[in-house]
Design a protein around this nucleic acid. Structure first.
Length: 817
DNA sequence: GACCTGCTGCGGGATG
């Protein structure tokens, strides 16, 4: 083992010693195994595998490993982020230089220049770091197998980020093809490795990566624990802290000392508009932060974001206000403190964010939790317990994603073409498509060659030619369009925001701009801007001096509270009234809990609380399953439907992550006696269909599916079509399939996705099953309770502007006494 | 005494 000696002595010269898990990874790799490496952030997961490859290389060529050859591509490193790819390439290059190994490290991603691509094509670097999309683009090139002739190893970095997404499916498919090429050329099997943070289903994560073939893959777990110090910031005047709200600006004075005492702080918010508001407020409160504070979220111009990331790296910034855009990626060493404003919604996400600080072995990650309303403080106690018990969420792998398969087959068709029998074998051995039937496969092939039962008369849907079992796309126009559209991320159509004088600020939703009059001011990227005009999907602006500006809102995703966190939250309520609890969060909430108990009840984890409250608005029913807003939305609709079968009655519905409300102008006939029947899982599927508009939900899901499957052309880069266009064509296709091709697999997929992701059907069932064995506690409080107040405020918001809302809340309080 | 909602990720290439 010459390689290992060389590496360990090189490390020793730096006063470093490999961790045990790293040595285990080297060993396993040396034996030709595949597997998954799991370790907390900051312990060198990346290097465990990179050095394993280097060691094996030295052992293979002990005398001439420092000689320059044209070795060809040895190691393919899949990174989900372009920024991460750059960082890793830089680090690898440094190591190789120190070891005097003349290997090239290349990056292949969307920002790789045309000339670099061309030279890569002539001579591949020994190591290539690539995004899943770019990997498929390689597969879409003529003679693509030649690139991979010398490939021995593939590493999927940050695999926990990809599993559970269609980008992960792209990786599965690419691996199946690369394995196929290796087998065709009678080379030794590829070594396939994943690198993953801890998730609930690590075993499954590995199976997904390996496919159904590799039986003897290993999981290497680092027996290391990241030291995380979670500190809840308890509102100074707890008895005056709002019961509802999500911005948390009241806590600003308590956030400032934390920021000032730290070297560099990342302040995470849940939404882009919230980050804009916090940025402005911090700057107003501490003008001395000017130049040392920055803002980072997904709608800010990429160049500006890169500047912020670099400034963070170099320690120039004191604080960065951000959203999930800084969840992962580049290692920001100067960051020593993280502040989470509002609920992180999940344990894994919270850990991930905590790990952004103290990013070195044995350093402590400091994370402060800042509640935005009183009850949210319980989440801090729940998070603490969940971290101790390592109760980390699972990521469910995507199954039978037909849209991605259609795209992939087209990729193969535009490069060298494919033999259906070979590819069928390969695809069926991926985790995603293991249950694909021969009929499904035939349908897919027919759809790509003829357009299927619905689209057979339109030539643009006949994408491939068939001769026997060989499929190929001969149209150069289709091939080019296809290469442009590789990928599974379907973004909403956004409008660019540019200065009149040139200079790009960021993006904003069409709908937001359409509500502005020229001369109106709004805030983006922390700047006050005056709207001038729109032209070609671009909003032109100039600097504004106005003090009153509107903060835009973006219609982003709505992440529900995870079931792990919900479960822990329910458990924490058991301790709410116990004097023995040591959680400072629960102790601080004692007055609130006492009030809730006086007015109503605090549910234990084996109870379901239901509150009947009558106000001047009507009759309210509040239910608290703590299962996240998506489940609550569906449950509310289901319950409303079932109650309306007892008595003719109509409701309006509201919900948040903790519970939901049904509001009616007549008494709601739900009692402790009939409640079990109203929450039963009997006839669930049919009654869901009746109560929820699943067709509409499926129609919304279908838009992305149609784009990914290549049925809708989104236009050439930089010239995106307007949103209306996309909606219209996808809706049209949806109708055509429904009417003329009801067995269409893409249509079925749309319904499946609606049930799985939008209604969280599995989780709904589990919730109902839990309720079936729970004790149901029905109370009749005389006024609004601390539990119901946030939901009530939320339901008012739908129908009112914010000023009216403030008045309304005052009235509510007054009426509540 | 109680306010403002809603994340992220990627991206042709052949020819003159």
């Amino acid at each position: 083992m010459k390689g290992k000696q060389i590496i360990t002595s090189w490390l020793a010269a730096k006063e470093l010693k490999p961790f045990q898990f790293q040595e285990e990874a080297w060993e396993a790799y040396q034996q030709g195994k595949s597997g998954l490496v799991n370790a907390p952030t900051g312990f060198g997961k990346t290097f465990s595998l990179f050095l394993a490859v280097v060691i094996a290389w030295i052992d293979k060529h002990p005398e001439q490993y420092r000689k320059k050859y044209k070795n060809g591509l040895q190691l393919l490193w899949i990174s989900p982020l372009r920024a991460l790819a750059k960082d890793i390439a830089r680090a690898m290059t440094e190591v190789l230089e120190e070891l005097q190994i003349p290997w090239q490290v290349g990056i292949r991603s969307g920002d790789t220049s045309i000339s670099t691509r061309a030279s890569q094509k002539k001579q591949m670097p020994e190591i290539m770091i690539i995004t899943p999309e770019s990997l498929h683009i390689l597969l879409a090139q003529r003679d693509y197998p030649a690139h991979f002739k010398h490939l021995t190893t593939i590493v999927a970095d940050e695999w926990h980020e990809l599993i559970g997404t269609k980008r992960g499916v792209m990786v599965e498919l690419a691996l199946s093809r690369l394995k196929g090429i290796t087998a065709e050329e009678n080379r030794p099997p590829l070594k396939i490795w994943g690198i993953s943070a801890t998730i609930g289903n690590l075993e499954e994560a590995m199976q997904v990566l390996m496919g159904t073939h590799y039986q003897d893959a290993v999981i290497i777990r680092a027996q290391l624990k990241k030291n995380i110090a979670l500190k809840s910031v308890i509102p100074a005047e707890m008895d005056k802290y709002p019961w509802a709200g999500h911005l948390g600006l009241k806590m600003l004075p308590q956030a400032i000392p934390v920021i000032m005492a730290s070297q560099t702080t990342l302040l995470f918010t849940n939404t882009r508009s919230q980050s804009e508001i916090w940025y402005q407020s911090l700057l107003t409160a501490c003008p001395e932060l000017a130049g040392a504070i920055a803002l980072h979220h997904g709608s800010i111009d990429a160049e500006l974001r890169i500047w912020v990331e670099e400034a963070l790296h170099n320690g120039i910034l004191k604080v960065v206000v951000c959203t999930a855009s800084l969840d992962l990626g580049v290692d920001f060493r100067p960051v020593d403190t993280v502040i989470q404003v509002g609920s992180p919604k999940g344990v894994a996400r919270f850990l991930q964010r905590a790990g952004r600080s103290g990013h070195q072995p044995n350093a402590i990650s400091n994370i402060y939790f800042l509640p935005t309303h009183a009850l949210e403080l319980v989440e801090a106690a729940a998070l603490k317990a969940a971290m101790e018990e390592e109760l980390i969420e699972s990521r469910m792998p995507v199954l039978l994603a037909w849209d991605v398969l259609l795209q992939y087959l087209m990729t193969l068709a535009v490069s060298d073409g494919f033999h259906a029998n070979d590819i069928w074998e390969e695809v069926r051995n991926t985790y995603c498509y293991q249950h694909m039937t021969p009929e499904d496969w035939q349908w897919i092939l027919a759809f790509l060659t003829t357009g299927g039962d619905a689209l057979f008369s339109y030539d643009e849907f006949k994408k491939m030619d068939r001769s026997g079992n060989f499929f190929r796309c001969t149209s150069r126009m289709l091939a080019m369009r296809h290469r442009l559209h590789i990928g599974t991320i379907v973004s909403d159509v956004m409008m660019k925001v540019k200065f009149m004088s040139g200079g790009y600020v960021g993006v904003i939703e069409e709908g937001f701009i359409s509500r502005l009059q020229p001369g109106d001011s709004f805030t983006l990227a922390g700047r006050n801007l005056e709207f001038v005009m729109t032209k070609d999907m671009t909003a032109f602006v100039r600097k504004s001096t106005s003090k009153r500006t509107i903060v835009p809102s973006w219609q982003g995703g709505r992440i529900p509270l995870s079931s792990n966190l919900g479960w822990m939250l329910r458990r924490k309520f058991n301790e709410a009234l116990s004097r023995r609890t040591k959680d400072p969060e629960l102790l601080a909430l004692q007055p609130l809990f006492n009030l809730q108990e006086d007015l109503s009840h605090i549910p234990k984890d084996d109870e379901l609380l239901i509150e009947h409250i009558q106000t001047e608005d009507g009759y309210h029913l509040f239910v608290y399953p703590f299962e996240g807003r998506l489940v609550h939305e569906v449950m509310a609709a289901l319950l409303a439907w079932r109650i309306s079968r007892i008595t003719p009655i109509t409701f309006s519905i509201a919900m948040n992550d903790y519970g939901f409300e049904l509001l009616s102008d007549q008494p709601i006939p739900l009692t402790a006696e009939n409640s079990k029947a109203l929450f039963t899982t009997d006839n669930l599927t049919t009654e869901l269909q009746a109560s929820v508009n699943s067709t509409e939900m499926a129609r919304r899901k279908f838009r992305d599916i149609a784009v990914i499957a290549g049925l809708i052309f989104q236009g050439y880069p930089g010239k995106n079509k307007a949103n209306r266009h996309l909606q219209a064509s996808s809706s049209l296709l949806f109708n055509v399939f429904r009417d003329y091709d009801p067995h269409n697999l893409l249509l079925q997929q749309a319904f499946n996705e609606a049930f799985f992701y939008q209604m969280e059907e599995a989780r709904l069932r589990e919730t109902l099953d839990r309720i079936a064995v729970s004790k149901i506690v029905v109370t009749h409080p005389e006024k609004l309770t601390p539990f119901c107040f946030p939901i009530k405020v939320d339901s008012l918001r739908d129908t009112m502007t914010s000023e009216k809302l403030a008045d309304r809340i005052k009235k509510l309080i007054a009426a509540n006494g």
